[in-house]
Amino acid sequence: MDTNTAALKKNAFRVTKERNVTCIRIRVPGGHLEAKYLPVLQEIAEKYGNGTLHITNRQGFEIPGISFEKMPEVNAALQSIIEGLEINQEEEGAGYPAAGTRNIIGCIGNRVCPYGNYDTTALAKRIEKAVFPNDLHFKIAVTGCHNDCAKVRMHDFGIMGMTLPRFDADRCVSCGACVKKCQKKSTGALTLSNFRPVRDPKKCIGCGECVLACPNHAWSRSEEKYFRLTLLGRSGKKNPRMGENFVKWIDEDSIVKIILNTYDYVKEYIDPDAPGGKEHIGYIVDRTGVEEFLKWALKDVTLPEIAEVTKPLYWKGVEY
């Protein structure tokens, strides 16, 4: 059988262990979807696959056991999901136009979780719209707060939700709940002075624990939503490492811009001999130097006044 494996992979199918048998990867940006799409998955698995379905690490589904010749039919069957999840598509009925940039994953966020500082699925979808389709190997993840349930520090771009806590002294009952919570669960940014909490902005990570702990709404959330952007975390065989702090108190628009700028940077500097045309961004940065990367990434980006950019940026990670 003659099959162009590069084209197959780009179309979100896989080469598997079994000859002439593939597996389709269905992405769910932000990890949240309407239940009405589940019967579609079931039908594809039972009609074209082997009747099973794998829940992926990146919040998608893989349906294995599909024979190569059924790929066009599977793509046609996927159309309602691709449209329903608002995935940018180049040709109707032709499935996913790219698979290089991975699904943007998110924790459940503030749609459900009390700690979530924003709607993670909505941001994941916004980024998806801006970056997809793209063949470059980018991993992006969003999480509602610094608990980082989505493990965003293992991604090229990690986004953690923050709120800038506001204090209304007239509502403070001096119970000390915020100070205790911040000490025990967060960074110990609060201390009591003259019966009331004092916030150390250097230590504060905008987690919102003080807002949640206050029994009388003395602490409240900022109208603006802020984020911490971490950079260039990765797993893999060569030199795994955690994403490092990049910008604290960044806004959504700047995040999207920095990600898009980084695509331009990668197009310029990616190793032309990279296997499969894929190279972790971090290795490219190791080659060009951080300063060159920052020049590209921060082009035309206007950060909020409150934003703090970590300097110098340095990664070490695990060496084998």
Binding site: N110, P114, G116, N117, Y118, D119, G144, G161, T163, G208, V211, L212, C214, H217, S220, R221, E223, K225
Partner: peptide
């Protein structure tokens, strides 16, 4: 608006 202890939620006060 946005006055709840939770994000993107209101409070009646």
């Amino acid at each position: 608006r946005g006055g709840s202890i939770y994000s993107d939620a209101d409070c009646i006060r």
